[in-house]
Nucleic acid binder design. Structure first.
Length: 423
RNA sequence: GGAGAGAUACCCAAGUUGGCUGAAGGGGCGGGUUUGCUAAACCUGUAGUAGGGGAUCUCCCCCUAGCGAGGGUUCGAAUCCCUCUCUCUCCGCCA
């Protein structure tokens, strides 16, 4: 959510910046709605002021045994008028609010223009794509051969885009999860939590998942909860409607969670393998920081995620998302993409974003400056550190040998109970 | 699932015959007096916030809202009515 006062004063400028996302975006209806709302509000409040005053007079008159019939009669009319104005104002305000709810965050300076992921900018590359002296197999074939991934039975038990991890595959999934969590906790000073895996509407709205992405989520029918599409939802909402002390910042929270995604618009995409599933595991990192620090913190955050790939020795690149590919709430996003031989390209395993005060404003998340004074909205960031399922796929594919065995990266050996090779 | 109790400011806690109570009283915190320092005592200040307006526009003034949330009754609601949420206690069930 944008600050509507800032919007009022800089409407044209904001609109211009937002066109980096969408050249069609038009904020002009806001001006009228805002003006109308304020006008109605002023009229209403003036009458309320009058009502409050006269009610006091009526109270005094009654106490002293005087007649106040004419005043009461007058106030009956005023009360009626207030009710009318209130109704009208609420209608306008609703429209005003809804308009505001649908405006995405303003892209930061440096976000490249562009319509979709084709125009994201590569800014870094670590290790060259894996080369093979033989024909490498895709992870779904290897996974089946090694009996560590079972999509067929996943479909049987749940449906398409579900799978079982089995045997050393299940072990690898768990090892990665633990490795990620341990590393972030020990070396990047994260506080670890286990969050709810469902959340309510307010929480979904708070991070910007609603109102725009309703169809991307699973909703529980009998109570209206949503299955979280990412742990970002509970983690960012953890301190909702709270005022933190500046000394507490930055607050760094991490957790593992399963992520549930409807993948409504993805028919036919990535139908083979475990790259795009309705449920996958992810370790998520959330930072709540001072507004002056958020862009510096984003560099740290993306570095924390990159560290995971480097320790696993997986080739990756870092891209800056262009305006058209930027998430609704984000002002600036880096994606980390791991090399996936079966796709013959890099695939996203982490997305690290600075949301500036966009989520904080929706969520009511402030801090009190150390030197005193008014509390203000802080900045929120998050990043995957990392998506576990896709990392598993990357390990299987990048570290296979000509015998169809998979070599486990050394950093995971202890976590794998000594298993160094699958197969 | 059944039966009760509750939700008031940073915390505890009065207030439910509707009207100088936007909120008594504690505690805590800020400031001050006394004091060699500490402690203690005394005095004093303590809605944060949201929205709107004004201004000598980074912090000042005015107004509106705000006693769990949302509606309603009334000239006027913390107080009366309805709906919802959450917390606690007992019973039942359960990982």
């Amino acid at each position: 959510m944008l600050d509507h006062r800032m919007l009022r004063e800089n409407l044209e400028h904001c609109n211009q910046r937002l066109r980096v996302r969408d050249p069609e975006l038009d904020l002009s209806p806001f001006r009228d709605l805002d003006q109308k709302r304020r006008q109605l509000l002023q009229e209403e409040e003036n009458l309320k002021k009058e009502r409050n005053q006269v009610s006091q007079e009526i109270a005094r008159a009654k106490r002293e045994g005087e007649e106040a019939g004419d005043k009461i009669e007058e106030m009956q009319r005023v009360a009626g008028r207030i009710k009318e104005l209130e109704t009208e104002r609420r209608e306008v305000e609703k429209e005003w609010q809804e308009f505001l709810d649908w405006i995405p965050n303003i892209p930061a300076e440096g976000v490249p223009p562009g319509a979709d992921e084709e125009e994201n900018q590569e800014v870094k590359r670590w290790k060259e794509p894996t080369s093979f002296a033989f024909e490498p197999l895709p992870h779904w074939e290897l996974g089946e051969k090694l009996d560590i991934i079972d999509s067929r039975r996943g479909s049987k038990v749940a449906g398409s885009r579900f799978y079982f991890m089995k045997n050393e595959g299940a072990l690898l999934e768990r090892a990665l999860t633990n490795f990620f969590l341990d590393y972030h906790r020990r070396h990047h000073s994260y506080r670890e939590v286990v969050p709810p895996f469902m959340a309510n509407r307010d929480s979904m709205f708070g991070v910007g998942q609603l109102p725009k992405f309703e169809e991307d989520m699973f909703r529980v029918e009998n109570n209206g909860f949503y299955l979280i599409p990412t742990a970002e939802v509970p983690l960012t909402n953890l301190h909702r409607d709270e005022i933190l002390e500046e000394e507490e910042l930055p607050v760094k929270i991490c957790s593992y969670s399963p992520c549930f995604r409807a993948e409504a618009g993805a028919h036919g995409r990535d139908t083979r393998g475990i790259i795009r599933q309705h449920q996958f595991n992810k370790v998520e990192l959330v930072n709540l920081v001072h507004p002056d620090q958020s862009f510096a913190q984003l560099e740290i955050l993306v570095g924390e995620a990159e560290k995971m790939l480097e320790l696993l020795e997986l080739p990756y690149r870092r891209v800056v998302l262009c305006g058209g590919d930027l998430g609704f709430a984000s002002a600036y996003t880096y994606d980390l993409e791991v090399w996936l031989p079966s796709s013959d390209k890099y695939r996203e395993v982490s997305s690290c974003s600075n949301f500036t005060d966009f989520q904080a404003r929706r969520i009511g998340l402030r801090f009190r400056p150390a030197e005193g004074g008014r509390s203000q909205f802080l900045h929120s960031l998050n990043g995957s550190g990392l998506a576990v399922g896709r990392t598993v796929a990357a390990i299987i594919e990048n570290f296979q040998d000509e015998k169809g065995q998979v070599h486990i990266p050394p950093v995971l050996h202890d976590y794998m109970g000594g298993v160094k090779i699958i197969g």
